[in-house]
């Protein structure tokens, strides 16, 4: 303050006033386009989708309101039911297995092993691939005619059979495999960062008290990593619900529509079959599913933090 008062000329004072107001407005100005784009591009269109889901829009939007008819049709659709139960199966297995593999790998890597950096990179690399690439590669590997099964047959193990990709009852599990392969390295990295942040004196103290290493991890370290669990589940859940590219690349929803996920269904009805109303209704249900999962979770997590 003293420095400013010592400034002699009035010009400087005026310009400093302008600078002040610019300083106050600039952040708002800079953020404004982003807010506008997000406001229209996300929340505006969300609202529009909600409106359309109550109309009989077929291949162009119309505003002939039909109440909940689209939702009723959706509930009767066999394909939608398959898609939703696939999401539950896929989402549950994907999140569960990713967390398990991620935590175990992170704990192993945390044992001050040699070449940790190289190993960490190897596990993390799948994350750098796009889902389309992952899906295509896994499709080739799992295709019985050209992948794993053929290789085993060529090597002489002719009774070997692994046809999950073309078996309607098991194809959804191949999608889980590919997705887990892609994302578990990322979960590992998150947990490794968390583990490195744990105070080593706690571990030493527990050792002195005679606790074994598994007990230390199970009772002490992992509970302290709750925020990491929280962010992992967040990231994995949204990958699961929006999953579209992986399915399209691996099976295109097939055999039949046995690997359909809600996002695939939404795309097919809205864009292939010109049923925008129906597609919007399915999109709203997907949004509902995400909110139903995330809101209580966010609420409990954030509230507990405040208690701390």
């Amino acid at each position: 303050m003293e420095y400013r008062q010592r400034r002699p000329s009035g010009v400087a004072r005026v310009s400093s006033g302008m600078m002040d107001s610019l300083q106050r407005w600039l952040p708002k100005l800079v953020v404004a386009p982003t807010v506008l784009i997000i406001g229209i591009g996300i929340y505006g269109f969300m609202l529009w989708t909600a409106v359309l889901s109550f109309t009989d829009s077929s291949f162009l939007p119309s505003y002939n309101f039909v109440g909940l008819e689209q939702y009723a049709k959706l509930m009767e659709s066999q394909r939608w039911l398959v898609a939703s139960s696939n999401l539950a199966l896929f989402g549950g297995l994907f999140i569960g297995i990713c967390l398990l593999i991620g935590v175990v790998l992170a704990i192993f890597l945390d044992q001050r092993i040699r070449q940790e950096g190289a190993i960490r990179t190897i596990y993390l690399y799948p994350m750098a691939l796009s889902m389309i690439v992952t899906g295509t590669v896994w499709r080739w590997i799992l295709n019985p005619r050209q992948g794993l099964e053929k290789m085993m047959h060529d090597w002489g193990w002719t009774s070997f059979s692994f046809d999950w990709l073309v078996n309607p009852d098991f194809a959804i599990y191949t999608i889980v495999m590919a997705a887990v392969w892609q994302a578990s390295g990322f979960v590992m990295a998150l947990f490794l960062a968390g583990l490195r942040g744990v105070d080593s004196s706690i571990i030493s103290a527990a050792r002195v008290d005679g606790a074994s290493l598994p007990v230390i991890y199970w009772k002490l370290i992992l509970p302290s990593l709750r925020p990491v669990f929280f962010s992992s589940v967040m990231v994995l859940a949204h990958i699961a619900i929006k999953s579209f590219d992986l399915v399209m690349a691996m099976t295109s929803g097939g055999p039949g529509y046995s690997t359909d996920l809600p996002a695939v269904y939404m795309y097919a009805t809205t864009f292939t079959r010109g049923q925008i109303g129906q597609g919007s209704a399915s999109a709203m249900l997907m949004l509902g599913a995400i909110l139903a999962l995330l809101v209580p979770y966010l609420y409990s997590e954030l509230r507990e933090k405040r208690h701390d």
Binding site: S58, P168, G256, Y257, S258, A268, R273
Partner: peptide, 20 residues
């Protein structure tokens, strides 16, 4: 037929073709 009805028939047929 319209793409909507066509899609509905596709679903039934492909589901039948892939059924156990």
């Amino acid at each position: 037929t319209t793409s909507h009805i066509q899609g509905q028939i596709f679903d039934v047929v492909t589901n039948f073709a892939n059924s156990d």
